[in-house]
Design a protein around this nucleic acid. Structure first.
Length: 807
DNA sequence: TCGTTCCGGGG
DNA sequence: GTGTACGGAACGA
């Protein structure tokens, strides 16, 4: 059985070093292997192969019209033959594997038969989803052969090339490419240029030639699919040249860039996006990787390359920054600086790739799909399902038909988020159930009822064990070594799959192995486990604060130490069903619970952790944020006069103009062009644009970030960025004031900012106090000694914890 | 002012 | 050729 498990996870064919696969509907395949010869020189071999294109059918009805051209598999045939193989499975399941020498012959036969059967013209197989199950040519080949990408390779073995276009505008109709920075992880760093419009064609040709010469396995950039490739494609069209950046195809010529539309379900609606593909190389957009990363972590300030590179600590000290709209103008005056800027871009892309592509790399060693697809595929439908299909065909077993899926179950509610108390609590502990849903599936053997072979649970079991091994191996390896990164990436890939197993069952009618009853059984048991934990805590006198699907914050008695807390968690964990592990996550000296998922924690080492938007300001004026962090810390420490002082000091600093303008300024991103803004200005004034106009600027581009503050009489003052990187004087009529002088001005609207302090920063501490205490703490009156603003002295104010809900 | 829609990125 | 979403800002009544 173990052998099956490993085949389910990794396929079975041992071919090492596959770095790209290209297959078409005629059953022709090229794949490229990266190998080393005896002397250790690396080479890329191109291998030609064939496969017989296949499709799965629930019956032979549509192909019976073929007569003697319909033949059982194992017997010979001609180019017109359609073969069938019967898999184990009941009526209604996809139990006939149809194949032909050419996929088009196969489809033609099916469409003809279906048209006869339905008495209407059937144009595509997609019109018959209940009757046929089909995957793309590369997937057919990988599923049939048991091959996967990258066997025996480490991430650094891949030859990756990054390139970045610099253009005169964002829109290829209005601008052109004047520079392309190219680097790879084999030592290349080069800048190709076209100072004049007539040079652009040559530039494109040189670029294609360079790519072919370097012959990388992977092409990478940030927003590759959204910007660089469409731009390249459009400019190539204008110059009437082809973008031959692929590896050599069947006819001996380099393969061209191809485009296709992809439907993505982002949010509730489906949206289209254009994808590109090229033979022999995998196209990787680091923007996809960044989105996927942040989907879990939710910590990135923006998805822009520069911001993300800084976030990951990839930006170098000497990194050149230039505002997007200034790049071309800057290039004309200071070309060397723009060259450095563009090379910084590609090297940050390389850094991002190293940091984020490990998991998709590891997934490509498991699932039967192209690496480039796995890099952006959804984990359930895009990765797990192809693995399930591969396993079923390997076992000669039919896939469940639409009738076998279970879609009826009541829509599972998932795990509720609950707020038991708001305000300030001390001695707080976080505990949660490790991998709750996958653990429940394993413990209670809850899988899709239509998964007759139990493949999903097998894969889940095997991945869970393998992941523990990988994690152990990662811990043993030299930190940050190639091996450590490899193990770490593999365990991360496995985690992605493990976590998607539950979601897959509830994915609805599109999932082949959907079982929404099983999915709701998982959430039902999950809720029961959580309820058991909550009751156990309450029974022992703990104060519940907040709970979500698989975790809980609660307060323990005052004098408790970490050992006692751990013992409590272990004790309650021991009462849970075997296989369900309650983990002690951490302890905090205090917590401000604001709303569900919005709280601040103070660790015993004094670190302040703020979670959720409600406790962060969206405007981030520096003075307000400083105040909030200080006030939160004081509140959590019980230092009430510290809170009052922070407030009074901030008010006073504003009144006395001790704060420079930069401290009250906010920074926003422009979205309107000058024309658009001027057209609507009569109706509605917007501070950011007013600030620019006030400074005499008449030209700007959407996307620019503008820092400004509010001065008296509703005047808005623009503070240009300190680097002066943006300063090209043709953009405004009168030269701007000195940025340093502006940053230090004191003519801001004091009363306005005091209101902001009160209404948008102090507000966030409201739950920590009784209404009377809150108003007393944040009143602007400096109390005289005896005028009784405080009903009781400040020292008597204590933070409160208010019960919101009971279990 | 409130709901509703759109966007996120790239030069 | 498939299957994330949520917070903030802009927009429209």
């Amino acid at each position: 059985m173990q052998a099956h498990h490993d085949e389910y996870v990794f396929g079975w064919d041992p071919t090492p070093g596959i770095v790209s696969v290209w297959a078409n509907r005629q059953g022709r395949v090229l794949y490229w292997r990266r190998v080393r010869d005896e002397e250790g020189n690396e080479r890329v071999l191109c291998v030609r192969d064939r496969f017989r294109p296949w499709i799965l059918a629930t019956s032979l009805d549509d192909v019976s019209h073929l007569g003697s051209d319909l033949v059982e598999e194992g017997r010979g045939g001609t180019s017109r033959t359609v073969w069938y193989r019967e898999l184990q499975g009941e009526e209604g399941s996809y139990r006939f594997l149809l194949s032909a020498f050419d996929g088009r012959t196969l489809e033609q036969a099916i469409l003809e038969g279906a048209s006869l059967r339905l008495q209407r013209a059937v144009k595509t197989v997609q019109e018959l989803p209940d009757a046929y199950y089909r995957v793309g040519p590369v997937e057919q080949y990988l599923i049939g052969s048991g091959r996967v990408y990258f066997r025996g390779l480490h991430y650094d073995d891949l030859h990756r090339l990054q390139f970045d276009l610099e253009t005169t505008a964002l829109d290829p109709h209005r601008g052109r490419i004047f520079l392309i920075a190219v680097r790879d992880n084999r030592g290349l760093a080069e800048v190709l240029e076209a100072p004049h419009p007539e040079d652009e064609k040559r530039l494109l040709q040189t670029f294609c030639q360079l790519v072919r010469e370097r012959d990388p396995d992977i092409l990478e950039n940030h927003n590759l699919f959204g910007f660089d490739l469409p731009f390249l494609e459009h400019r190539a069209l204008i110059h009437d040249i082809s973008l031959d950046i692929g590896r050599t195809g069947f006819d001996g010529a380099p393969m061209l860039l191809e485009r296709y539309e992809e439907t993505l379900a982002i949010g509730p609606e489906a949206r289209k996006r254009t994808r590109y593909s090229v033979g022999g190389r995998e196209l990787i957009d680091t923007l996809d990787a960044v989105r996927r990363h942040d989907f879990v972590v939710r910590a990135l300030p923006s998805y822009g390359l520069k911001d993300v590179a800084r976030y990951f600590g990839l930006a170098s000290q000497e990194r050149v920054y230039i505002e997007g709209s200034e790049i071309f103008a800057r290039y004309q005056r200071e070309p060397e600086r723009v060259r450095r800027y563009a090379l910084d871009d590609v090297s940050e892309v390389d850094g991002l790739s190293k940091r984020l592509q490990g998991a998709p790399f590891a997934l490509a060693g498991m699932a039967p799909r192209r690496y480039e697809r796995l890099a952006s595929a959804g984990p359930a439908m895009g990765i797990l399902e192809p693995m399930l299909v591969r396993a079923y065909l390997r076992r000669e077993t039919a896939l469940p038909g639409s009738g076998q899926r279970v879609l009826s179950g009541d829509l599972h509610e998932g795990g509720a988020v609950r707020l038991f108390a708001s305000g300030v609590a001390r001695n707080v502990v976080k505990a949660d159930v490790a991998s709750l849903y996958p653990s429940l599936m394993r413990t209670f053997q809850i899988g899709p009822s239509c998964d007759r072979l139990g493949v999903l649970l097998s894969i889940l079991d095997r991945l869970t064990d393998l992941r523990l091994e990988q994690k152990a191996a990662a811990r043993e390896a030299v930190p940050d070594s190639i091996e450590a990164n490899h193990y770490e990436a593999t365990q991360a890939a496995m985690k992605i799959l493990i976590n998607s197993a539950y979601g897959y069952m509830g994915a609805g009618s599109m999932a082949l192995f959907a079982d929404s009853q099983a999915a709701s059984e998982v959430t039902r048991r999950g809720r029961a486990i959580l309820a058991q934990v909550l009751q156990a805590l309450e029974k022992r006198g703990m104060v519940l604060i907040e709970a979500d699907t698989d975790g809980v914050y609660f307060a323990v008695p005052d004098h408790w130490n970490a050992e006692q807390e751990q013992r409590l968690v272990a004790e309650i964990g021991a009462e849970l069903p075997a296989g369900i592990r309650l983990e002690y996550e951490g302890r905090y000296q205090a917590m401000l619970s604001h709303e569900v998922k919005n709280y601040a924690l103070l660790t015993y080492s004094g670190e302040l952790i703020v979670r959720g938007v409600a406790l962060r300001s969206s405007r981030v004026e520096p003075f307000g944020e400083r105040f909030l962090l200080q006030a939160l810390r004081c509140t959590l420490l019980g230092d009430i006069s510290g809170v009052r002082n922070a407030y009074l000091e901030t008010v006073d600093a504003l009144r006395m103009k001790r704060l420079p303008a930069i401290d009250v300024a906010t920074r926003v991103r422009l979205s309107k062009t000058p024309e658009e803004y001027l057209a609507q200005r009569k109706k509605h004034l917007e501070p950011a644009y007013e600030a620019l106009l006030q400074a005499g600027r008449r030209k700007w581009f959407p996307g620019e970030r503008v820092r400004f503050y509010r001065a008296r009489n509703r005047q808005y003052v623009w503070i240009p960025e300190e680097t002066a990187e943006t300063a090209t004087h043709n953009d405004w009529e009168q030269p701007p004031g000195n940025a340093n002088e502006l940053r230090d001005r004191r003519d801001y609207d004091t009363e306005h900012y005091i209101q902001v302090l009160k209404n948008s920063y102090a507000k966030r501490l409201q739950k920590a106090f009784t209404p009377e205490d809150y108003h007393a703490l944040f009143s602007n009156e400096q109390p005289g000694l005896f005028d009784g603003i405080f009903e009781r002295p400040l020292e008597c104010i204590q933070p409160i914890l208010k019960r919101e809900e009971t279990i």
